[in-house]
Structures are given as structure tokens and as C-alpha cells.
Amino acid sequence: MSELASLSISNLTVKFGGLVALDDVFLKVAPNTIVGLIGPNGAGKTTIFNSISGLVTPASGEISIHGKKMKWPASHQLAEFGISRTLQGVGLFSGLSVLENVMMGADITSGTNFFKDLFGASGKAESKLRRRALDALAWAGALDMAEKMPGDLTYPQTKRVSVARALVSQPKILLLDEPAAGLGQDDIDKFAALLKQLKQRCAIIIVEHHVDFIGSISDQVYVLNFGKVISSGTFDHVKRDPAVLAAYLGTSTQTGSEKLGGDHA
């Protein structure tokens, strides 16, 4: 890969007290690709996201964003670096309208100058933000929900809204935390189509339990177990990897491969 990676992580180690949550993890995401992270519960998938988005401080490790080596970002710096994430379980504000929720994705208070944020937060800036939020909603196919409250939406609709919220800052790297969880097959198919379109605009990293879904959309798949990357490559490659079969099933039989390729939600 001579191409400059959107995001590249190496030697990432995270400890929670005595527990090693991530051990020497690496990850490379090329622009306009979808990278899937799979692995059993507690394998450390979400911890990778938390490290990238400043919620967890790594014990060691390097991160490069758009080919530039840098410090691990703090939460409020993500928009600046072109990173956006959705939250497990959606995380919409119940007391704000859908449109306002999406506007919140734009990192309104990220400016380095607080007073500029405060007084630059004029009606003009706000209406510009409103338009951007409407664009993002239209893009995620959720424009007609703009004035509704999150409580009035169906679960698949809230997923679309949370993607719109992640898109409003026009990220170059999008982190999706279990976007397919709780969706029916029909909605998963629609969502996969949406993501394939989305990858023309940014690189996408997805943490997901739904192996079929990951297999159908990912260009690269990383398999984690007990905080380590045990396999990486195309989905066809990793699903035949004996280490992966062992991790998922405790054995490395051929039937295991079929099982992994099958419904494994």
C-alpha cells in the first residue's frame, strides 16, 4: 500500500488497572475503504474506538492521521482531525429535536477561542449549521424526521439519524460502533447500501458482532481476541484463518468455517 493511510495505528496497548485490554494492536485504514473489526465480546473492539476518540488514554502506541504522526486526540479535537463516531446504543439527546441532535454532531464548541465560539455563535452561523444538518439528514435518508423528537422514531430510523449526526462534521474517518445491532435483515441490507455509498466520501471503521454484515461490506477485516489482533486481511482470508476459527469456536474444523460464514449475530 503506497497510498497514504487515512488512519494508522501501531503498538497500541491499553491497560485498565491490571487488565490488559489491548495488547500491541495495529490497524491501517486506507481512504475510501471500509474496515471491519470483529471479535468476541470483550475482545477490545470498542476500546480501540475509545482510544482513537480520546475516551481512553493508551499506555503506549502510535497513531497517524492522514499520514501524519500525532498525539492521541482528545474528544474535542476529533472534528478538527476529521474523525467522527457514532455511539453504541445510538446516544441521541431525548430532549432535542432530530435536527438539533444532528447539529450537535458539528462540534459547536470545538474552537480554541471560547469567546469566539460564544460570540461567533450568531444566528448566521447557526442557520448555516442548520443547513448542513439538513443536508446530512437528507443524505442518510432521514430528512422527513428533522422536526420529530428521537422518542417518536423507530429504532432503524434512530440509526439513520445517528449516522447523519456523525456525517455533519464532514469527517474523513467515520467510526461506527455496532451500527447493525438491533436491526432486521431488511434494514441491514438498506444500511449496507448506505455505507457503500458513504465510502466514496470517507474511510469507515466498523465495530460489529454481525459477521455476515461485516463480510458483505468490508474491504479489510481485523479479528480481535483478548485484546490482540489475531488475524487481518480480506473477509475471505480471515474466515479461513485457523486462529479465527479457534477463537470463535474453540476448534479449527471445517464445519467451523461454515458456521462463521453463516449467521453469527
Binding site: L96, M104, T109, D117, A121, E126
Partner: peptide, 10 residues
Amino acid sequence: RTGMGLAMRA
């Protein structure tokens, strides 16, 4: 009507 106000409500 302002972004900061929205941030505070959120």
C-alpha cells in the same frame, strides 16, 4: 438560536 446555546441544552 445559537450553537453554544444548543450545546448547553444538550
